[in-house]
Structure formats: C-alpha cells, structure tokens
Design a protein around this nucleic acid. Sequence first.
DNA 1: CTGTTAGCGCATTCAG
DNA 2: CTGAATGCGCTAACAG
Lengths: 339, 339
Amino acid sequence: MQSAGKRRTLPTMIDVAERAGVSLKTVSRVVNDEPGASTHTRDKVRAAITELGYQRNTAASELRSGRSGLVALVVEDASEPYQSELGMAIETELSNNGILLLTVSTEANRDRANLAVAALAERRVDGLIIFPSIQHELDFSPVLDSGTHLVFVDRPSPEISTDHVRSSHRQGAYDATARLLDLGHTRVAYLGDLMTLFTGTERVSGYKQAMSDRGIQIDTRLIHLQNPDLDGVGEAFLAMCQLTDPPTAVVTGNSLTTIQLLRSPHFDSARTAHVAFDDIPLGDLLRVPLTVIRQDITTIGSTAARLLLERIRGNVVPPRTIIVPTQLVVRESDTIPGA
Amino acid sequence: MQSAGKRRTLPTMIDVAERAGVSLKTVSRVVNDEPGASTHTRDKVRAAITELGYQRNTAASELRSGRSGLVALVVEDASEPYQSELGMAIETELSNNGILLLTVSTEANRDRANLAVAALAERRVDGLIIFPSIQHELDFSPVLDSGTHLVFVDRPSPEISTDHVRSSHRQGAYDATARLLDLGHTRVAYLGDLMTLFTGTERVSGYKQAMSDRGIQIDTRLIHLQNPDLDGVGEAFLAMCQLTDPPTAVVTGNSLTTIQLLRSPHFDSARTAHVAFDDIPLGDLLRVPLTVIRQDITTIGSTAARLLLERIRGNVVPPRTIIVPTQLVVRESDTIPGA
DNA sequence: CTGTTAGCGCATTCAG
DNA sequence: CTGAATGCGCTAACAG
C-alpha cells in the first residue's frame, strides 16, 4: 500500500535535458508537441521523462506564457440539476481541449462572490462562463482588466456586451401554451417568474403571443408572476380557481414554480391540464407524468464552451448570441383523464 | 457597456512598490498579510494597489511557493445528484478557506481519466477528493509523487492508505430492512449492487444482519445483486414474485436500482412495501412518496474538505476513517395501503 | 533541426 | 520594521 503526502523535489526540465543529452529547449519542444525535433530526439527525451518521472510544472509554464489552461464556471448553486448538467457539458467540451474547469457557486459565498471572481482574475483564468445569478449582479471588472473572455448562459448580461447562449425561452413558452390551446382549452393560466428577469419576460411574452395568435382574450387574473424562491404559487392558483370562470389548464414557467404547484394541496393533476417549462428530475415517475418543455442544456453548455474556446484561441469577432431550441416532451399531465 | 477581451500589460508588484515608494518585498508583505509592515506603510501600499488596479499573479506566487491553492474533486459524473451535492458541500468549505475547486468527471473523459489526473499533478493541486469510480481504478501515482494529499469519499481506496469519509452503509441498510420487518413483513427482498463494490457488500450485509437479528431465515432467492447500470431489476423482481412464497416488501440498495424498480411494469407500489437506500430527487412527489434511507451528503463533503485542509496545513496524523450516520425518512412507500 | 539567452512576477533568504 | 539580491521552472525570441 502506498502512502499519500510525502514530498520530495521533483525533477525539472533541466534534469530531463541532462539525462537525454539535449538542451532544455528541446525538452520543452517535446513536452509541448512543438515542431522542431526529430523522431529520434523525441524518443530519447520521452524515455528520459518516464525514467525520471518528470511532470511539467504548470505554474512556471503559465507564468511564462500567460495562459492558465483554466476556465471557470460561475453559477448560483452548482448542485441544482440544471446547473450541474450545464457544468458537466462544459467540462466535457473543455477536457477534450486540455482545459480544466473551476466551479464557483455564488450562493455558497454570497458576500464573497465578488472575492471569488477576484481570485479567478488573480489566477488569470482564460475564460469565464457565467450563468447569471438571480440574486445579485457580480462585479466582473477584475477579470475584464486581465483580458479574460466571457460567455453568458441563459440570459445576456445587462452591462457587458459579450457572447451569449440560451434557450428559445419565448418559443418554448409559446409551444407549451399552444399545446394546451390545441387540446381545446381557452382558460389557460400562466404561473411564472417576475418580469425583472430576462427569462421571465421572454416566457410570459411567449404565453401571451400564443393566446393572441389563437384569438383568445388575455385575462390578467390568470397570470401570476412571483419570485419562485418564495411561497405563494399554490395560493395564487387557488385564487384563480375561485373566479367565476376558472382556468382548466396551466403553464408553469420554471421548475421551482412547477414543484411548488405540484406540492400544493390546492392543485389536482387529475382536474387541471398542465405543461411545465423545464423538465424536472424523474418527471416521468410523478403521480401524473409531467408534460414539459425541455431545454437542451447539454447543447447550451457545449456551445458556450465552444464559443469561449474560439476566443481563447484568438478568434476576434463581434459578440454572438446563440439560441438553442427547446422541445415539447408529451407525457400525461397535459390531458385530463376525464376529458 | 464594457467590452470583454482586451488585453494590456497588468501592473506588477514592482509597479506598486514604485508608486507607494516602498520596496517590492514590502508590497509582498502587505498583499500576503505577513507581519513586518507598519500600519502607515500598509495603507500607502493598499492605496497604490487600488490606484493601479493591481492583481496578484497567482502563477508567479505558486511557482515560488509551491502551493497552488487548488483542490480537485474527482468524480464519475458531476451532474449526478449525489455527486453534485457533494461538490457543492466541498466547494463551500474550501471557498471559506480561500481555495478554489477543480472538478474532474472521469465520465467526461472516459479514455483519458488518467490523463486528467496527470494534469492535476502538473498543476500541483494541494489536494484531491476522490469519489471512486465504479468503472475503473485510476492511477494516482502522478499526484502522490508531488506530495498531494488525498481523501476518499463513500468508499476507501483499495490501494492507497489515506483519509476516508463515508456513510454508515451497513447501518443504513440495516435500518431500512428493520423498518419493514417491524411493520410485520417476513418476506423482504433485497435488490442491490454487486459485492465487488465496497458499498454493495456493506449494504447487503446490513440487510442480512437485520434479518438474522429478528430470527428470519435468509432466502437467497430474495437477494438480487447486479450492476445497476444494466437493465434487469424489474425482471429479477418478477422472478421473485413467481415464487410460491413471494416477497411482500423490498429494499433497494441504491438509487439506480430504485428508479429501475419504480419504472418496471412488474412492480406495483400499491402492493409491495418499499424502502430505498438513497433519496431520489422529488421522492415526495412520486406516485407513492418514497420512504428512504438518506445519506448526509453535505456533512460527508464538508468533512472530507476539512480533513484535507488539515493535511494541507501540515497536520501529520495517521489515516482517518469518518463514518457519517444515515437517516430513515418515512414517507408512504413502506406501508401498503390495503394493510 | 537544435541550442543560448533572457526574464515572466513573485517569495525566500539574509542583511540592514 | 524594511530592503536587496536571488532563483522558482519554464517558454519566447532569437541564433546557429
């Protein structure tokens, strides 16, 4: 059994050079797969590397070259399903390009989120992928100073003009609403996020558009927007049901709202048709399997990583916006059993 | 609107020293909160730092000092709920100590998982927290050479003697089984992982112990162990139901097996009592809310991070094993409606 | 194809 | 309490 934690001096490129009988620079060429070394020399150097157990010291390389080989993902809570799936997609794309991923959750360190960004700046990360926090805007000036590239996911930055990848929030909400309308409903409620959020605005406007397109009067009493972190969705739905003309169907605009509604005693999946924006884990195993608008998070993540990699490699183009389509996944909750 | 990606030369400690009219070393003292600088000097230096927008270059500091301020979490799939919650707990603990977290999913880099570990070694990460992969043993010799500290989570390493934090797998499985036995069942099946896994072995032995303690004969036909990545749980359960004395209750030993069973057409939650090891997301919203043994992942993660931090700070003690208790969460699936 | 020189920005060592 | 000198390990720029 090996034991961890012993430290001795590690061999350097100079040691390898001596062992292989070549110059320092030649070793560097081999290690970095640069041209300018014969196959024979390469083999000699490689042999010396394995004999000595040489490992390149990234810190030195980084200091000299200015590139860190590090990208950071800044999210609110890396353990939330959407965000962890995003992280996984990004990591996959980056690791295929020899870049390691740092993850910073602003929630974990609310007061110190800006400190964390400063730490990323000190580390000279090559790029940042940002899933903007709902809670508070971060100060990205430290990383901008050092020429780090930024990509925003899910919604654009209000202050910084840069690349941005997101779902077609509006179209997704449109599709959710249209689905219920096509099933014959006319009283369709919308429970969603506040309009202060970009995504909230987009989605509610998709809902309204679908209603208008089918010539259905929009009843503002059937629209409830609130911060989904706070309670109140169930009560809002109850109030709607007490109208003389209550809703027969409902669209929920985000997962938190969906879960609040499903957990509410005032909501009965057997009596009200329901389509949710955002899939939730195990949505197929619920009491009534949930019909949802699913975001293609993996594509969003890998696209964000790809845009970032292009810029890191020196591609200079104007800021781009990429919209990734959503998908309607029909299960059961959109149809009422009795109907 | 600011625009990202412009690069100019950043100020260094020398610039700050000149501006403040002190020496390089004094700046270093202030930046690192070392003693040996008067309050007056500190203020002068701090002022110069803000005026110039100075940011320490971590690479240089790292090259000189040998410490990277980086810890890596090596998991199989960072998007899986258990693993992302673990990551979040670790990140919280580390960020409180000024350390950033790298996440490496071996799944994202299947063929190259060992290469990723080598990359961590080259980066001289201060420590590694490892949630061992089911798929394949990794080669940690590169990081051991550079004196990196390791902590294993969930199960110990078969090869390396080091710190290790995990749930009381055996006690948890015991509690799950005992719960069903106490409810009057005598034919309790166990569907779980292979015994080649540490956790699989621990949990099945907890099940057996509970049965024996209550004087109930263990029927090996009611025990099914398999790789939960593969199909077959539903069929195995069906086979048990066709016995002359079929099970009236079942314990599932891990989330994948639980989900397979719940999705299987051969299993009916209304007819068979069920307790699952490991909570699953939204377990309370399932057709029949799931009674589970829940692991305290947050405690596991923060404990692992704490043990690692101690070693990074130079604490030399023999390898430690910390067992974190599990908790029975009673919902409904353990009782059959008719009974 | 290969080698020499210089210096990235900082922390360590030792001298005041 | 403060400063000067040195070099961590590597890569960029050039020379042969």
